[in-house]
Design a protein around this nucleic acid. Structure first.
Length: 191
DNA sequence: GTCCGGATTACCT
DNA sequence: GGTAATCCGGACT
C-alpha cells in the first residue's frame, strides 16, 4: 500500500476500503474514504504550505490529524511522494473490536451505527487528537493501518462538506456495508 | 488585533 | 431537511 499511496491518492482512497484501523484493543474496518490533492481547491494545501497543513507534504503513510468546526478531529493518511501534498480522509468505519470503549466515548450515539459513521465520530471513538499528527500509520506501534479484504462492490460520488471540487468523484464507499457509512444516499453510483 | 469560514455533529421539526 | 454550537487557522488591516 505504500507504493499505492505514493502513486495516486485517488486510487489509494479506493484501495483503502476494507483496511483495518487499530489502536490497542480497538479495531474497525474502513468503509468510507475521500481523496484530497494539492491541485484541488478543497485541499487544505491548495493555497500553499502552512504550519497547519505541513504534514500533507510528508512521507506517504503519515497521519494528518487536524481540528475543525471548534469540536472535531479528522484523521487522514498522507499520499503521493514527499513534497506533493495529498491525503485520504477516513470518513466512516465498521466496529470490529473494542465496541464497549467506542460506546463509552460516543455517549451521544443511540445506535451502534452512529459510533463511527463520520470523520469526527471516528476520531472521537478512537480517542484521537493532534498528538497523533505526523504518526506513521503503516508501522507497528500505536495507531495503525493494516491490510484487509477488498469490498466486493464500491460506490463513488462527490465528497461531503466541501464547496469547491464537487465535480470530482473522489468519495469511495464499501457498497456491501452501507449500514456503517455516513450519508449513504448522497449521490453515490457504482464505480 | 480583528474577522471569517470550516473535509462536522447533534438536535429540532 | 434545516440549523445552532463551537473555536482554531489563515487572511487581512
Amino acid at each position: 500500500m505504500v507504493d499505492r499511496l505514493e502513486r495516486d491518492v485517488v486510487d489509494a482512497a479506493r484501495g483503502l476500503l476494507g483496511w483495518e484501523l487499530s489502536l490497542g484493543g480497538l479495531r474497525a474496518r474502513i468503509v468510507e474514504t475521500e481523496a484530497y490533492h494539492v491541485d484541488d481547491p478543497a485541499c487544505h494545501a491548495f493555497r500553499g504550505r502552512t504550519r497547519r497543513n505541513d504534514p500533507l507534504y510528508g512521507a506517504p503513510g503519515t497521519a494528518y490529524v487536524y481540528f475543525t468546526y471548534g469540536n472535531h478531529w479528522m484523521l487522514n493518511v498522507v499520499a503521493c511522494p514527499e513534497g506533493v501534498a495529498a491525503a485520504v480522509l477516513f470518513r466512516a468505519a465498521e466496529p470490529l473490536a473494542g465496541i464497549e470503549t467506542f460506546r463509552e466515548r460516543r455517549v451521544k450515539a443511540k445506535r451502534d451505527e452512529d459510533l463511527l459513521n463520520g470523520p469526527g465520530k471516528l476520531a472521537q471513538a478512537f480517542g484521537l487528537d493532534g498528538t497523533w499528527n505526523g504518526h506513521l500509520l503503516l508501522e507497528v506501534g500505536g495507531l495503525r493501518l493494516e491490510q484487509g479484504d477488498m469490498p466486493a462492490s464500491v460506490l463513488v460520488g462527490p465528497r461531503i462538506g466541501i464547496s469547491q471540487g464537487l465535480e470530482l468523484p473522489w468519495r469511495f464507499v464499501d457498497g456491501t456495508r452501507l449500514r456503517w457509512v455516513s450519508r449513504p444516499l448522497a449521490g453515490l453510483r457504482p464505480g
